[in-house]
Design a protein around this nucleic acid. Structure first.
Lengths: 344, 344
DNA sequence: TTGTAAGCGTTATCAC
DNA sequence: GTGATAACGCTTACAA
């Protein structure tokens, strides 16, 4: 049972069990073609010898790598400022693990890096399928992958930006409705939003939804875009509060900015939530660590990762997936939102 | 130049250029064995046909996968609560990208999962090298990898826990010195620390260093362990502040807990930094988003990831690495630390 | 300089 | 049921 130094092959197992290499292959893969007796013997010996299939050889013979590809945009700031990606990877990885799949990660650093990594994977066959995240408006990656139907792809995005690709749709639009209605019910009639980068597709989706819902409810709505950092979040907040008739509620696209917004309000002597309500779109540990705890729109990102893994495996099996809805967001009411003051 | 649907092989390139497959291989790999004329022709045709090497075939022939393995402990909370891992991955990935390497990620869910993933990689040869992070005290992974010298490994850890493995050593011990000395110079003589899980090797390293330095300087020092979440951070803070003679400064092992500690102090009417100084060990966006901004011990984690990638590639090339020191931490003084009140 | 052919370790297709 | 043997696509001696 000692761990073998030199790698053992099916030929070694075959010799040790006195059968042919193909018999070994059948036995190990649970296929018919060998008697139960020899199968048992082969399995026993393979285990004793510590045999494991060589990944490269298996991949070459089966044209299956047992790998899912994930391209991350290289912006350490963006990646670090939110726990979204790490949670997604956690769920994805945990689910893939059950099916003997691994996650192959590459960083897209530079201009057309993302596109060329995808091209590379299509040509080299280094992954069995890909997960596409952070789609931008008019993203060329979508077009490329639409053409290459031989590469299974799942997009995590709003269905309106993922073209013909199979999609795990975010519940953003619904959540916007939920959030705005919540503030409306609290009496707010003038709200603002501190959003992420404008070119990100999901920013755009939220932008539109916010505008629509605010109009529908007859509320005043103002939106400023940032790069997700607390600095730009603070700036935006200051600008919003600089008007005498400032909004009575601000929704932030991530929790770091919500936190910095809370700080700005405090520094300017504006009481939260009595004079100003604050909501965060992400619900990370930060929201419960802050004082007062931040009201947030939360969702189960780890669960989304797991769901994505399941769908990817379906796609690899040639099953149809289409457009699947993500679990809805949940409004987690905490200490930074309240009813609007009777008069101002 | 149209993208080929069916994969093109070197034989296709060979036929199209009227040479043999080996000539093509030589030409494409920049090896001697072909005239410059044919090389140019082959390269041109290969490009026109959109040829890219098949990953599995190349891996099988060269016994090189162009992949680095990373095992993450599956605890979405732990992974999400800090940006450390995502930053490390960013740096790692960006540097690997330059050398045509990818990152293969697997989640260790369950008891001995980490160990068996490592065993799997040793046997299947699915990665060329491994990065070992989050080593625990007496970690069996270290022992296993020490035996398998054929698998290049870099540990990111304190050299005292990584055995004979090549190591990128954290500068934790030095940083502890720096932090405590800083508080001492501000007049603090009674400090406390809210630490992470006790079984993590780096917690232990810091534990020891803190004890030593405090003793050396003749300071009172108290330490409580948590699971890194804001809830346990708050609890620990409350306990520390419940004594009439409470510490005048608290250092937290991560920024979420520091933030929650700040909240606890505020809620109890203790002014920061006038009556209590607070420091965070990690410096993420949260520290500059909080109000007041949190003083923190920061370091360039992305840079550490890049350095790790370089060292791993060296190891793969058979070079000696040994024990390399990480860049030192940097004390980033902000609004939550100050001199101790003249009398209490 | 060029082409032929033997690996690399599997899986899959055949006859037997 | 079993065992040769040919793919899989590339690298690399070894011949020509």
């Amino acid at each position: 049972m000692a761990v073998q130094k030199s790698k053992v092959t099916i030929f070694d197992v075959a010799k040790a069990s006195g059968v042919s290499s193909s018999a070994v292959s059948y036995a190990l893969n649970g296929k018919s073609g060998v008697s139960e007796g020899t199968r048992a013997k082969v399995l026993k010996i393979a285990h004793e010898l510590g045999w494991k299939p060589n990944g490269a050889a298996q991949a070459l013979a089966k044209s299956k790598t047992q790998r899912i590809g994930l391209v991350l945009g290289y912006d350490p700031k963006l990646l670090a400022v939110e726990s979204y990606m790490m949670e997604l990877i956690s769920g994805l990885g945990a689910e893939l693990e059950k099916h003997d799949y691994s996650l192959l990660v590459r960083m897209a650093v530079g201009e057309h890096a993302k596109l060329s990594i995808i091209k590379d994977w299509i040509a080299t066959g280094n992954v069995d399928a890909m997960l596409l995240v952070n789609i931008e408006l008019g993203d060329p990656c979508v077009t490329l992958l639409e053409e290459h139907t031989e590469m299974p792809v799942l997009a995590i995005a709003d269905a309106s930006v993922s073209g013909k690709l199979s999609t795990l749709s975010s519940a953003d639009a619904d959540a916007v409705h939920q959030a705005v209605q919540y503030l409306y019910d609290l009496g707010h009639r003038h709200i603002a939003r501190v959003a992420g980068p404008e070119m990100l597709a999901h920013s755009y989706i939220r932008d539109s939804a916010f505008s629509d819902v605010a109009t529908e409810l007859g509320m005043r709505y103002r939106c400023l875009h940032t790069d997700y950092t607390p600095e730009t979040g603070s700036e935006a907040t200051k600008r919003l509060l600089s008007f005498s008739e400032h909004p009575t509620a601000i929704i932030y696209d991530n929790d770091v900015m919500a936190l910095s917004g809370l700080g700005v309000a405090t520094a300017e002597g504006i009481t939260v939530p009595d004079e100003l309500s604050i909501m965060s779109w992400d619900d990370s540990f930060m929201c419960t660590a802050a004082y007062p705890n931040l009201t947030a729109m939360g969702r189960d990102v780890v669960g989304t990762g797991m769901r994505a893994a399941e769908l990817l495996l379906k796609l690899i099996d040639g099953e149809h997936v289409g457009n699947v809805m993500e679990e809805p967001y949940e409004l987690r009411q905490r200490g930074t939102t309240g009813s609007v003051p009777a008069e101002r």
